[in-house]
Nucleic acid binder design. Structure first.
Lengths: 88, 88
DNA sequence: CATTTAAATTATTATATTCTAATAATAGTT
DNA sequence: AACTATTATTAGAATATAATAATTTAAATG
């Protein structure tokens, strides 16, 4: 596994997971906190948090704190365009 | 690791690798055989063949035999659109 | 038909990813 | 300040992916 990593491949890897795709679809509607996403997807808190971290580290999501909550929003709308492309 | 696999995620996973991205860029120009791709990318034959197999199994590439060669071509142009989207 | 060439497949090893569970950190609340 | 709620981080085990080397298959050529 000694292939040079590329920005493009890393970006696509961030999108290439069922849960992360579902997160992006949820956040397309509106910004949401971790708990809310966890309820919608019925997954463990730590797991959601990790997936959100991956999407954020690639610049796909942004985060703001509000009350005791972390509200995640889509920052890079190319991600949504890609998902729509795949569905067509 | 018990997430349901989705068509979308599997599709993106097929694209999410540096070598496979380079293969798609090469094939965007013209159809090529395995040997030719191997020379261009300077990688082992079996490795190229495996990557081509992955792209083909997802319906992204098509294959025709010609002389003693397997000529691969891009079949699903959404893949190229996605790569272009990422670069922008 | 033996030999060469091109490509696919298989087995193996190394690495990466993902999930769970446990714990830590960070606010807010009482 | 103790308590609670929310989120993040860490460690570990299970699984998946990727590269190499070796082998096999298939077709073309002498």
């Amino acid at each position: 596994m000694d292939q040079e990593k590329t920005v493009q491949a890393e970006y696509l890897k961030a999108l290439a997971h069922p849960t992360r795709i579902r997160i992006l679809e949820l956040l397309d509607e509106e910004g949401r906190c971790v708990t809310n996403i966890g309820e919608k997807l019925d997954l463990k808190q730590s797991n959601i948090s990790q997936h959100l971290g991956i999407l954020r580290s690639r610049g796909i999501l942004s985060l703001r704190r509000e009350g005791g909550h972390s509200i995640y929003c889509i920052k890079d709308t190319r991600a949504l365009k890609i998902l729509k492309l795949i569905k067509s």
